[in-house]
């Protein structure tokens, strides 16, 4: 009996002086893997405008019907994005929208802290979905929805 106790204490003592493996979330965060499927982000051109041409293929392919694309005629007379809404309440993070996109305007981001105090903050509009130019899947902090 005492042998077993000593064995246990030895293990405790051994790990007592080791660095802990627990990541102190949310004070600490692990980097996400390269192909992680976090919240979808809209990618921007160099000038900060969305790359999206409003073709609506992501909306068509989305299995959970969470995307709504609104189009308008742009100043050059060509179809342009008027509004992009992605309802995270419904999103299944499947990444089919990224595969369907013909112009690489949408990517799976690395953000995963998506909890909110209601359904409305989870309906993402174009402004909140749009990533800064050149920062494709960079993580973002969401400020909305916190008390």
């Amino acid at each position: 009996m005492s042998k077993a106790l000593l064995k246990g204490l030895a293990l405790t003592l051994k790990t007592f002086f080791r660095r802990p493996v627990t990541v102190q979330y949310p004070d600490e965060k692990r980097p996400v893997p390269e192909r992680f499927r976090g919240r979808p982000v809209l990618l921007a051109r160099e000038d900060g405008t969305p790359r999206c041409v409003a073709c609506g293929l992501c909306e068509k392919i989305c299995p959970s019907l969470c995307i709504a694309v609104a189009a308008e005629t742009g100043p050059d007379g060509i179809r342009a994005l008027a509004g992009y809404t992605l309802d995270l309440n419904r999103c299944a993070f499947c990444g089919l929208c990224v595969e369907a996109c013909p112009v690489e305007a949408i990517a799976m981001g690395s953000e995963y802290e998506l909890a909110a105090y209601g359904r409305e903050p989870l309906v993402y509009t174009q402004e909140r979905l749009l990533a800064a130019p050149g920062r494709g899947a960079a993580p973002e902090r969401m400020g909305e929805g916190k008390p």
């Binding site: 041409v53 409003a54 073709c55 293929l57 060509i78 179809r79 013909p102 112009v103």
Partner: peptide, 8 residues
């Protein structure tokens, strides 16, 4: 330009 063509 099918993505921006209304005939698509």
């Amino acid at each position: 330009d099918c993505p921006v063509c209304d005939k698509a």
